[in-house]
Nucleic acid binder design. Structure first.
Lengths: 234, 234
DNA sequence: TAGTTGATGTGGTTGGACCACATGACATAG
DNA sequence: CTATGTCATGTGGTCCAACCACATCAACTA
């Protein structure tokens, strides 16, 4: 077992045992190195891995927020990992979109009509109405879909959904350039959002699931994602 | 931007551009450090992160398999990340099980009856019949469910499913100790496996989905996972 | 020819040094 | 007494030089 893995397992044990909790601080790198009788380099490598996994955040300086603190941001971490594997062409973008449709359909079909996240979702839709910039629209769109997913009450589903979205964020942003008429597309998307939210609020999970699947697939289809080149199609 | 992130983005670009492909080798750490004009330490930190994400594998020595080569093992990486977040209690085990049920139900309902993975799944079931040790049984069980998931043809779904399983592997192993009678449980599980595979082979996706959901939920329920303490239940 | 031995190149690990940054205590000018 | 500037302290960030363990392969030797 390599040295940094020893540090990793020590930290994981501290987490499991509750000696290290969310918001808590790890010992300073130098102190931890001395305590575990390893070099600071090995400690740093372990912390890098934890940082990449969204378990800790390292900040320089002194006092309050400084040092290495325990956080819980699995979505960004999983998103980066998935993005890299998309880059190696081991994970097709089409499969990611399909998985997102699956998870989000399930989420809206299970969302409770009285979930507080739905109020936030409604607020986001109002904000989208008054924002015309493409970037703002897309950022609000992400937040809306995430709020919708969180309404189902399954942290794993919403986390994975967020990471899938993040993994293909670059592709999605590039695809908007393919759209023939952004204004009309945005108008349609707003409309579909309202319909989805209405279905959820009505407690009609099945309809919400159908709508959200069509909404996502329709967008990527319009933008031309996952379509093989025309000349290879029958 | 920190130095190791610069190295990371360089490598990611090499991957995206196809200059670095699956099975390919990264330049040696010392060479890469000189090429990018950074310290070897920073290169190593970047490689550690990629290793944790299942993108590369580092081996000492010289010749053939030595050095840092590009691999594609997202499942183990995602599994580790999820396991850590379970340790911080940010992701409930019950949510992971529920997500696994969702993904696996979808997978079997979409599996093609002529998928080659199903033959492998059948072979694994035969092997399970002749293995009595608990550990062997569980290992084969993992392989069976994974083969089933792969039959749906979505790499992302099967990858995430595998990582979910891995994230709670420790819990699952501990839970088998709770079972009152392992032999009878194993017999029942074998039976259910056959029924699930038969449904898939018959092209009855809906039945397969129902069966697999009951199969997974039944196992964890029997082992006592995710049940709130009795006194808190209505 | 068969076995041994050394050279080579790889990642793994260590200790030490210095930097940039953020904070807080302290001294000082008003 | 207050406000301001300054310095000590502690943090992560980076780099360097050296050494180790390991795996391979070529040259050498019996």
């Amino acid at each position: 077992m390599r040295t940094h893995e020893l540090v990793l397992s020590w930290i994981e044990k501290q987490l499991s045992d509750g000696h290290l909790v969310l918001g808590g601080r790890l010992p300073a790198e130098r102190a931890l190195a001395e305590q575990l009788e390893v070099s600071r380099t090995s400690v740093r490598e372990a912390i890098r891995i934890l940082e990449a996994m969204g378990v800790v955040r390292a900040s320089v300086g002194s006092g309050k927020d400084a040092g290495t603190v325990v956080i819980a941001e699995p979505a960004t971490a999983l998103g980066s990992a998935l993005r890299l594997h998309v880059a190696t062409q081991h994970l097709p973008v089409a499969d990611i979109v399909q998985t997102r449709v699956l998870l989000e359909s399930w989420a809206v079909s299970r969302a409770k009509a009285d979930a507080p996240e739905l109020k936030e979702a409604a607020r986001l839709l109002d904000e989208m109405d008054s924002s015309s910039a493409v970037d703002d629209f897309l950022a609000l769109d992400v937040a809306f879909h995430l709020a919708l997913a969180e309404a189902a009450g399954n942290a794993v589903v919403s986390t994975i959904m967020g990471s899938l979205r993040e993994a293909i964020e670059g592709y999605a942003a590039a695809l908007t350039a393919n759209l023939p008429d952004w204004d009309s597309t945005a108008k349609r998307l707003r409309c579909e959002h309202r319909a989805i939210l209405a279905a959820v609020n009505d407690g009609d999970g099945a309809r919400a699931a159908t709508l959200v699947a069509a909404h996502i697939e329709g967008y990527y289809r319009e933008a031309g994602l996952g379509q093989p080149p025309a000349e290879t199609r029958p």
